[in-house]
Amino acid sequence: MNHDSTAGSTSRSRSALAGRKRLSRLKSYIPLYLMLAPALIYVLINNYLPMGGLVLAFKQFNAGKGIFGSDWNHFANFDFLLKNKNLPIFLRNTICYNLAFIAVNLIVGVFLALMITEIRGKKMRQFSQSIILFPFVVSIVIVSYMVRGFLDYNNGMFNAVIKAFGGAPVNWYMEKKYWPGILVFVSTWKGVGYGSLLYIAALLGIDPSLYEAAAISGASRIQQIRYISLPHLIPTCVTVSLLSVGHIFNSDFGLFYQVPQNSGILSPVTQTIDTFVYKAMATNVGMSAAASFFQSAGGFLLILLFNGLARRVSRENALF
C-alpha cells in the first residue's frame, strides 16, 4: 500500500466527513433548543425585560413614550424619594420585621421540629407535620378575614371576650402598639411549618447510633437534644436564616397589605418598601421606580453576600 499518495485525499475527505458529522450533530441539537425556546422566551419577557426596565428609576416616565422612550431625568427620582419623610420609617419596618420574622420562625420552627421528632406514634407524627404546614396553603386574603374575625371592633371575638369580662373593647385596627406583635404572630402562624419541615428532615437524617451511644453512656434525652440534635441542626438553621437575610429588603407584600386592612393610622408600623412602592405607583411612578430600583439592586448585593456565607456553611443548602 502506498500511504503517501493517499494520505492527502483521505485527510481531506476525513475532514469533510468530520465537518458533515459536526453539521449533522448540530442539526440534531435543533429540537433540543426548540424545547428550551418557550421557557427562554418567557423568562426574557417576564424577568429580563423588567430588569432592563429598571432604567425607569432614572427617567421621567411618560406613558406615551413608554419605558425605554421616556426622557432621562438622572437622579431626580432618587432626590424625591430621599426627601420623603416616611422613607426611614418604612425602611426600618422592612428590615426590623424581617429580622423579627427570621428569629421567631427559627426559634419556633426548631422547637416544633424537636417536638415532632420526639413523637413516636406514626399517626400523630404525620398529623403534626400536616397541621403545621396547613396555613401555608391558605391565601393571605383569607388569612386577613380570619384575623378580622378576631380583631373586628364590633364583631371580633377578642372584643366579645373582653366585653364578657366587663372590659372596654379595643379598636385593634386603630392602635399601633399591638401591630408588631400581631404581624409577627400571623407571619409565624402562616410560615413556620415550611422551615420546621426542613428542620425535621435534618433531624431525621442524623445517624441513630449517635443517640444509642449517648444513651449507653448515660446521657439524658435532654442532653442528647442539646449535644446531638441541636449541633446537627445548625447548618440548616444558618443557611435558612442567611438566605432569608438575603431577602431582607423584600417584605411579604400580602401580609403587610392585607392583614392590617389598609388602615391608614397603622401605616407607621405596617408600611414597608413593597407597600410603599405599590401605593406610590399610582401617584408618582418615578419615585416608586426609584424605591423599587433600590430594592432590586440592594437585594442583589445582599443575596450574593449572604448566599456566599451560606455556601461556606453548607454547600447543598445554598442557592448556587
Binding site: N47, P50, M51, G53, L54, Y278, S296, N307
Partner: peptide, 19 residues
C-alpha cells in the same frame, strides 16, 4: 432570575405598556 429582578414597578410597566 433568583438573584436579580426588575421589581414591581418595572414588571408592571413592562406588562402594561409593552404587552
Amino acid at each position: 432570575t433568583m438573584l436579580f429582578n426588575g421589581g414591581m414597578v418595572s414588571t408592571y410597566m413592562t406588562y402594561t405598556t409593552i404587552f
